[in-house]
Design a protein around this nucleic acid. Structure first.
Lengths: 148, 148
DNA sequence: ATATATGCAAAGGATTTGCACGGTT
DNA sequence: AACCGTGCAAATCCTTTGCATATAT
């Protein structure tokens, strides 16, 4: 298998073989807007092809994160979550999280304002602290409509 | 013991007794700018008074979070971290985190810009999604000076 | 044929829970 | 005396690691 389109022509390789589990995990994440944990991914893929192991899920997720195809983050419920990295909002992360039920709302407003602040701050941090900013994360938390 | 000053006159009580471990944990967090894990807190307090248990640390931290005296957050290294909630920047969270060594830099620049964005977004989210915003978290991550 | 990828089981690490003891009220 | 808070040990939960097997090149 050739691997994800956007990676086919890169020089740096993170793997030797683009296998079925890798394809299915990336495919699953690319098709959902949910922010899934390793276990949730496992549960879904296990139905499609029992025999897949949770270990492979974890190892593949690590790989995809390294490749920059997905993002890993945490909402404080004790497990890591993963989301597809869409081309158009590359590196930009933001979430609205319900503290009670864990629901995550995606909002796409104020992207420009956020990005402006982000760029300003990134620039400043790199100058003042010589810190190389690689990414950022903006979260709002509180209670969703149902949980209030 | 009477409990932390700002809580003495509240009606809602989260505890019956303000004990030595509670005092020492809150005191420790209030005096440091570090973002400590339960284990780090335990290690320090154990020196002062061996006999203290890690369980108490966890339970007390939960209590202090509920009381709003400290904040709990995570930087993705698998353990939760806690910081004192200073009166003056109530509810405002932001961190710059080195992905390699885990160091956290505190910056206090752009607070106004951040707050403006935050307020704007909070207002919007509550209107559009009927989401009650209780807090937020802004993180930048990358490589610190030493780790680059 | 050889190196890579996978699955299973075990190990690891953080956090939570059950329970009996001890100190306050 | 009754109850809350604590410490210890055990239990959980998520994630990583060791190792033998299966698979792609």
């Amino acid at each position: 298998m050739p691997g994800p389109r956007k990676w086919r022509h890169r020089h740096q390789r993170y793997f030797e073989r683009w296998t079925a589990p890798r394809e299915s995990i990336l495919d699953l994440l690319s098709r959902t807007s949910k922010h899934m944990s390793a276990k949730e991914i496992y549960a879904i893929l296990y139905r499609l092809s029992p025999g897949i192991g949770l270990t492979t899920i974890y190892r593949t997720l690590d790989l995809l994160v390294k490749m920059g195809l997905i993002n890993k983050f945490t909402i404080g419920d004790g497990q890591s979550r993963y989301e597809f990295q869409h081309e158009d909002k590359k590196g930009h992360h933001h979430h609205v999280i319900c503290s009670k039920c864990g629901k995550i709302i995606d909002y796409s407003d104020f992207l420009e304002d956020e990005l402006e602040l982000v760029h300003k701050t990134e620039k400043h941090l790199s100058q003042k602290y010589n810190f190389k900013v690689l990414g950022h994360n903006i979260e709002f938390y509180g209670l969703c409509e149902k949980c209030q």
